[in-house]
Design a binder for these strands. Structure first.
Lengths: 303, 303
DNA sequence: CTCTTGTGATCGCGATTTGTCATCGTTTGC
DNA sequence: GCAAACGATGACAAATCGCGATCACAAGAG
């Protein structure tokens, strides 16, 4: 069993056919077929089931691929760790950050990070835990900071709560509701929700219920920040968003905060990463910067 | 970077010299030197510092080796997982078990395990957490069941408490103290300790202090069960041991329990394993047998 | 001091692995 | 029925990896 076997099998599994994988890897199809046959002979069983339009994984192939991803990522990180130890800061740091972290923390850490590691490529994904979970597990994403899903994460992942989330209400500048001062005043408005953690029930509904109010009408569910901005600027809908939105320069002119008296709690913001597989020096440094920035800007200000 | 590079570097690091490693691996020294030179050229830096009597790891080499151990173990387990999925239950399960688990649980799981996996080799280590920690981290030991160290484990390991430990007092058959019925009666005796979890202070001392008694005299500290049996059978010393010793057939004739009225608590018995790196089917099955046996024999009986 | 012993580095050579190119048989969709 | 996409196979070239022999060097023994 060689590393190339893992690379090859993962590539074929992702592309769905040996030919497609061979084009992607830049080698001949025949070489790939032969290596694959060698591996299957060594294991004594088929990795792929040959079909007319390509190949699909056998149960044994599934096991091989999921282990293979982890192994390959570990090898890649080992190389990056060593390159970074040598001073030449190459490599990639891949992280998942929620919108709130994008807005309040990311702007202040980019500059110091590139002073220290000018050559490292930052791969930032705007996303929430459920979409990133599998990439976190196989090691292709170094860590994630954002709302924790349901307090329950995979066994091989470690979770660390960083701070308690807080929410506020945003609307378009010029929305007549801007004068409202309590949640009750907003009960008749139409809402845009960007809660992803809850799948079945809506987070806005839960908050209204907590304050003894009827569940309001949610007209739009948005996934990304861009969707939210676009919809919010062009309607009189309201959005309940992480408090960190108020620090976002670009929307200062377009959007306004409705300062209601209730204190709106949101899911805790947590750090999730693989329990094993130590981070590369660059990823460690980036995480450290994020931590300090959170400490300074959020923990000190809020509560 | 290939798997053979990791194997080679780990072997050289363990043996301390390239020649010794080449003998161990059964390949020529020249081949090893060349592969090593290739790897170092690829990484751009030295893995080993050449000395007159062998080689020693550079800091970069340390990083390479510690990652390499994890990667190699993961590859090995992938192979075993697949072989076990195919039915032919080959491979090895390596576990660390404390003495109490050896005595009370192990005898009842060996037979059912070999019915299911007749070809699997069981590698059982009698030991305590501190000695096994590094092997658990790099994946060479599948899991450990025994007293938890101080409630604090490495981040890449997961811990799960299985049951509350209980202790009792043993002595040689014929020891006049056998009639004692309270801890106070035993205060003047001399003791054999086999607590490993505590390094600085002795566990026996803590228990006596809990009951408001002076710390007794500990004459022998033993690491293994054999030491304990030997010393206990040939002296009039006493030993405070896990309750599970009373189930041990071999020492029924030689050793006796002093039935004192106090309830002696001991550290919890926990399961520790790597958080990631799922166990092979055989290891999962073995762990399952242990769990059920603990459930039946210990949780149901005690407390 | 010299001699022995253990070490890593280097060279030439053969075996093995791994790649390429061309070709074949099969299945699917038009 | 035919073109397109797929995997399997054989012949051959290139790269890799093994071996043995040999060298240079340092440490310890006498």
């Amino acid at each position: 069993m060689k590393l190339s076997h893992f690379q090859l099998v993962v590539a074929v599994a992702e592309r769905g056919s040996i030919r497609a994988a061979s084009r992607h890897l830049g080698i001949a199809q025949s070489a790939l077929t032969r290596s694959l046959a060698d591996l299957e002979r060594e294991l004594g069983d088929a990795i792929f089931e040959r079909r007319a339009r390509g190949v699909i994984l056998t149960p044994i192939g599934e096991a091989f691929v999921s282990n293979g991803r982890v192994i390959l990522n570990h090898v890649r990180r080992t190389g990056e760790e060593i390159r970074q130890m040598r001073g030449l800061g190459t490599g990639t740091v891949t992280v998942g950050l929620s919108i709130a972290i994008h807005l309040a923390v990311l702007p202040h850490v980019l500059r110091p990070f590139y002073v220290r590691y000018p050559e490292v490529r930052l791969n930032i994904i705007e996303g929430f835990y459920p979409t990133l979970a599998s990439s976190l597990r196989d090691g292709s994403v170094d860590f994630y900071i954002g709302p924790e899903s349901q307090g329950k994460v995979s066994p091989e992942l470690s979770r660390e709560v960083l701070f308690q989330g807080r929410r506020t209400v945003l609307c378009r500048q010029g929305n007549p509701m801007i004068a409202a001062r309590s949640l009750r005043d907003l009960a008749d408005a139409r809402w845009i929700s960007n809660s992803i953690t809850m799948t079945a029930e809506d987070e806005i509904g839960l908050i209204f219920r907590d304050f003894g109010l009827p569940v309001p009408k949610v007209s739009i569910r948005s996934q990304s920040a861009l969707t939210l901005i676009t919809c919010l600027s062009n309607t009189d809908f309201l959005a309940m968003v992480p408090m960190q939105w108020t620090e976002f320069e670009l929307t200062r002119k377009t959007l306004a905060e409705i300062k209601i008296k209730e204190k709106l709690l949101a899911p805790s913001i947590a750090l999730v990463k693989r329990a094993d597989m130590p981070l590369t020096p660059a990823a460690t440094y980036f995480l450290d910067l994020l931590r300090r920035s959170i400490e300074r800007r959020i923990l000190r200000g809020a509560n």
